[in-house]
Amino acid sequence: MPVPSSPASAPVGGGRQARWQPHNDQRRERIVAAVIELLEEGPAGAEVAMQSITERAGLSKSVVYRQFSGRDELDRRTRTTICEQFTDTLDTALDVTDGSIHRILHRSIGAVVDWIDRHPRLHEFLRRGPAVGDPDETNAMSSLQTSIAARTRRLVSGLAGVVGVVDEPVVDTMTFAIVSMTEATVTRWAHDPAPALDRDRLVAELANYAWSVLDGVARAHRLALDPDQPLLALLERLAVPDP
């Protein structure tokens, strides 16, 4: 008759793995941070050598390969981290509690312009392959656009719900159109060695284009938006039905 295993002894392996998990997470973060630093420092489009990564991270190749199954997984994880940094920056700019529609649009588009302008090599790296769990195997930038549009769509849908107007297909199309237009235009501007517009003029123009789309959709739903009124005050006004 087999002797039942002790409940206390069953999770020994799992417990050991759990104890090492924070240490392994820290190592992965060091490795990814090393890749990002080297991408920022190197020439545009250059491949970062594994030897350089291990030296920058202060780890041996064997340690790096224990943390990642190969270079593809490391590159995917790096793109995921870059995408998270990008969206964290944008989430702060999209704070609807601070400012009018115009201010929020200017701040958000300005954040996109500044990130792409300051991190051209990271932006280019996103276009060279997918991120972790990326349904678009072509490049991470396409999925990032979709992710940003989804975050913006949830925000706009929530605001529209306050005044009783939610047309999900229209909101989805509108937000993706604004996000993709902004990213494509900023990318073109950032790659132009002699752009016709300076940074502030570019932000102002793109914010005006975004406002035109938003205003047009609002008018189609019989909503009059004041782009210069604090957004929360505007929503409070719109949420009260006219007598």
Rank of each mutant, 00 (worst) to 15 (best):
T92W: 08
T146E: 10
L159W: 03
H191Y: 13
E124A: 15
L39W: 01
D88T: 15
L74P: 00
I82V: 14
L105R: 02
P130C: 10
V217W: 02
A207M: 01
A18Y: 07
E29C: 07
I148D: 04
D114I: 06
I104N: 00
A57G: 03
E47A: 14
T187Q: 13
P169Q: 07
S69D: 11
H119I: 06
E124M: 05
S6T: 06
E137C: 09
Q51T: 15
S142H: 12
A57E: 01
A49L: 09
E168P: 04
I82N: 02
L206M: 09
G216H: 05
D172L: 07
D200E: 11
R121H: 15
V186T: 03
L105Y: 01
R222N: 12
I82G: 03
A33I: 04
Q17N: 12
G129W: 02
D25F: 03
V3R: 09
R77P: 02
H106L: 06
L144Y: 08
A194W: 03
T182G: 04
T81G: 05
W20C: 08
R30W: 09
G158W: 04
T87I: 15
Y209H: 12
V170I: 13
A140Y: 04
V203A: 00
P169F: 06
S9L: 14
R201M: 10
P169H: 11
R128N: 09
A46H: 10
D226N: 15
Y209P: 00
R19E: 09
T54G: 01
L214R: 07
D136Y: 04
D98E: 12
G42C: 13
L74R: 03
L234M: 14
D172R: 12
L59S: 00
M50Q: 06
P227I: 14
